[in-house]
C-alpha cells in the first residue's frame, strides 16, 4: 500500500462547523460552538483513518459534515476528486451511495418498528434498486456477510444484543456497496469482548470489499490495529496525525502523549514502570475562541507563548504532523 501515489478518495480541507447558541426568552443567538474548527486530511482508497478524541471534541460533527448530514460553515469536502460540498442535495444523492455511516449507538440507530429486513433494505428501497424478491436475497446475502443468522430476517431490533444490532447497522451501511464507510464509534457502546468481534468483522469486510474507513473512536487502544493513519482531535482541530506505528511509538503532541499514557498496557512490568500523564481539568467549553493553542489550559508543558501562537499542523518527520510549536522538526 502506497497511498501517496494515487489521489485520495476523500479530501477534506479547512472544514468548519460553528453552531449558533440561542439563549434567553427570545432565543437570540449569543455565541458560537466551534464544534469543528478547521480540519484537513486526506483519506486514500482502501485505507483506514482512525480519528481519536475526547467526548465532545467534534468527531461526530466532522462525520456528519463529510456525509452532509450537516452543512459546513466553511471548507471543502472532495470525494473522488470532485468537490461535493457545494453541490445541491439532489446531486449529492449519487455520492450517498458511495459514502455510508455506521453509528455509535446500536439502540438508537435502528428504527424499533422495522424488521431487520426492512432496516437493511431501506437504502435499497430509497434508491429503488432491486425488485422485491431480489431485494430479499440481497438482504440475506448482507446478513450472511456480517455474520447474522438469516433466520432473523423478520425479527425486530429489540430482540437482538448490542453486537448483533451493530452488525445490522453494518449490513445496512453495506447495502449500497459504498466505497467508504464512516464508522462513528461503532464499538464504544459494546462490551469489550464484543468490541473485538466487531473490529475483526470490519477488518475482514475491508479486505473482502476493498472498503475505505474513517474510523472514529474516543480511545487510542481501539483504533490501533484497524488504522493505517491515526489523527488525534482536540476541540474541533486535529492536533497530531501520523501513521499508526509512528503515532503509537513516538507521540509528539503533549495531548497525544497524555492520551497514550492512559491506555493500559497488557504487560504488567511495563505498565508499572510507565509514567502517567494526568490531564488536569475538564475539556474546556468549545464556545471559547482560543487565539493560540486550545490545549494550553491543560497542557503539562505549556509556556507563555502557547496562548498566543496559532498552532497549525506541520510535518515534523515524514508522514507525521503535529500542531505544537514546541515540537522540534527533525
Amino acid at each position: 500500500m502506497n497511498p501517496e501515489k494515487s489521489s485520495p478518495l476523500l479530501r477534506v480541507r479547512g472544514l468548519k462547523k460553528h453552531f449558533p447558541v440561542h439563549e434567553g426568552l427570545f432565543r437570540r443567538q449569543t455565541e458560537w460552538v466551534r464544534a469543528v474548527d478547521g480540519v484537513s486530511f486526506d483519506l486514500y482508497s482502501g485505507t483506514t483513518l482512525g480519528l481519536v478524541g475526547e467526548s465532545g471534541c467534534g468527531k461526530s460533527t466532522l462525520a456528519r459534515l463529510i456525509l452532509r448530514l450537516l452543512e459546513p460553515t466553511e471548507g471543502q469536502v472532495e470525494f473522488e476528486g470532485v468537490d461535493v460540498s457545494g453541490v445541491s442535495m439532489r446531486e449529492f444523492r449519487s455520492v450517498r451511495k458511495d459514502m455510508q455511516i455506521v453509528f455509535q449507538d446500536p439502540h438508537a440507530s435502528l428504527d424499533p418498528r422495522m424488521t431487520v429486513e426492512s432496516i437493511i433494505s431501506e437504502p435499497l428501497r430509497i434508491f429503488g434498486l432491486n425488485q422485491r424478491k431480489e431485494r430479499r436475497w440481497r438482504v440475506l446475502e448482507l446478513m450472511d456477510l456480517v455474520g447474522l443468522d438469516p433466520a432473523f430476517l423478520k425479527r425486530y431490533p429489540h430482540e437482538f444484543s448490542g453486537g448483533q444490532r451493530q452488525r445490522i447497522g453494518i449490513a445496512r451501511a453495506l447495502a449500497l456497496e459504498p466505497k467508504m464507510i464512516v464508522c462513528d464509534e461503532p464499538v464504544s457502546a459494546l462490551d469489550v469482548s464484543i468490541q473485538s468481534q466487531i473490529l475483526n468483522l470490519l477488518e475482514e469486510l475491508q479486505e473482502r470489499l476493498g472498503l475505505t474507513y474513517l474510523f472514529i473512536a474516543h480511545d487510542l487502544a481501539v483504533v490501533r490495529h484497524i488504522s493505517d493513519i491515526v489523527a488525534v482531535m482536540y476541540l474541533g482541530r486535529i492536533v497530531e496525525m501520523a501513521t499508526a506505528s509512528k503515532l503509537y511509538e513516538s507521540p509528539q503532541h503533549p495531548y497525544t502523549q497524555a492520551l497514550l499514557s492512559a491506555v493500559p498496557i497488557p504487560d504488567p512490568e511495563i505498565e508499572r514502570k510507565r509514567k502517567r500523564i494526568l490531564l488536569e481539568g475538564a475539556l474546556p467549553s468549545p464556545r471559547q475562541f482560543h487565539p493560540g493553542c486550545s490545549f494550553a489550559s491543560r497542557c503539562p508543558v505549556v509556556d507563555a507563548s502557547c496562548r498566543s501562537t496559532p498552532q497549525t499542523l506541520r510535518e515534523v518527520t515524514e508522514s507525521h504532523r503535529v500542531a505544537c510549536h514546541l515540537v522540534k522538526t527533525s
Binding site: 440507530s109 435502528l110 431501506e122 430509497i126 434508491f127
Partner: peptide
C-alpha cells in the same frame, strides 16, 4: 434526534420518506 432518522438521511431518504 434519533440516529435512525439520520441513517435514513445518510441513505438518501428525503423528508417524505
Amino acid at each position: 434526534e434519533k440516529e435512525y432518522i439520520e441513517a435514513a438521511r445518510a441513505s438518501g431518504g428525503g423528508g417524505f420518506w
